[in-house]
Design a protein around this nucleic acid. Sequence first.
DNA 1: ATGGCTATGTAGCATAGA
Length: 255
Amino acid sequence: MRIATWNVNSLKIRLPHLLEWLASEQPDAVCLQETKTEDAAFPRADIEAAGYRVVFSGQKTYNGVAVLTRAEPAEVRAGIPGYEDAQKRVLAATVDGVRLVCAYFPNGQEVGSDKYAYKLEWLEALIAWLGAEVAHYPRLALLGDYNIAPEDADVHDPALWAGKVLCSEPERAAFRRLLELGFRDSFRLFEQQPKSYTWWDYRMLGFQKNHGMRIDHILLTPELAARCTGCRVDRAMRKRERPSDHAPVIAELAP
DNA sequence: ATGGCTATGTAGCATAGA
């Protein structure tokens, strides 16, 4: 089973990229973030024509998540239970015996800002919820744009980013707390190229210079990690005209 | 040091992203 996550930075703009990528990579399940699309305007027909079922939770302009699956999804739930949030950031579904949680973590803007406080509060709610979920779903994958670079090795210029949003200690501590729930970082289960990133700034030739960060992740419960045979960043679509600033991350799970 | 792009909403810029 091939599962993937991709922050598309507007599904409307990126739909041609997505359809081409689905055809070439043939994933069994895909979690999308930043669809920026209201549910009424979601391009369901195009995605179904490509051979996927799709569920989504979106809003105008900001945020928005979707889960595409080859098989019929079950137990579809939007949001973090008990955490009221107008921002559409979380969507969960079960497919092929795997509980998929698609998440678009808050950016946080700047350490000390209101948005940063919201990010930390949101992280608390997520961790509390997932602590219970992993007991209920031993085969759970948390896929998404975490907006956290877990280690300095995940940042092209750690000195420049030290203590800043995406790299601050409270954010990294939250990531470690996810690991303490038993999650494994699928990317780090395998030997990888140094300076592997998933996001590059549109400005200043960020991609061409590989000035990036690894902020999109696939975390797996131990049972799924034991089945994981590979994880990679797919940079191909980032090289195209009008790309998303994020590249997809793809993990392979043995039956 | 800042921000250089990109997307959206909406009609000339403001906001947000990371």
